[in-house]
């Protein structure tokens, strides 16, 4: 498919992992959808940045490790993995504490990025 025909799709991850299943379900959906030749990106903001925290050990909860699911995103040919700077600061998270090095963007730039998409899927 020609690049011009590809839709720009952005997954917006706003929820913490484990308390609900939004995070895990969205990551699974992205993994399946990324294979269909669209221009897919993912952004982590608000409590969604907690999905990126290193050293998650949810074994006692019997749930999938969202940190590992996020790391698996690097296997896909994504447009970008974006992390909102203000969301990190509000939660006292440093980029070095995250499972991957996404592109850290200030809120104003992330707002612009979302506005440029053909489709925004928010979870």
């Amino acid at each position: 498919m020609a690049a011009a025909n590809k839709k720009r799709i952005l997954y917006v991850q706003r929820r913490a992992p484990y308390g609900t299943l939004y995070a895990q379900e969205a990551l699974e959906m992205l993994s399946m959808g990324a294979a269909f030749g669209q221009r897919v990106g993912i952004a982590f903001l608000d409590d969604g940045v907690f999905q990126l925290k290193a050293e998650q050990t949810p074994g006692a909860l019997g749930m999938k490790n969202s940190g590992r699911m996020v790391r698996a995103l690097e296997l896909h040919d994504l447009e970008g993995i974006y992390v909102e700077q203000e969301s990190l600061v509000e939660r006292n998270l440093e980029p070095g504490q995250l499972v991957l090095a996404g592109k850290v963007l200030p809120r104003v730039e992330l707002s612009q990025l979302m506005a440029e998409q053909d489709l925004v899927l928010s979870f």
Binding site: A16, Y18, P58, M63
Partner: peptide, 9 residues
């Protein structure tokens, strides 16, 4: 503590 550890803290 179980919920704290699960979330990476």
């Amino acid at each position: 503590v179980e919920d704290l550890r699960a979330r990476g803290f």
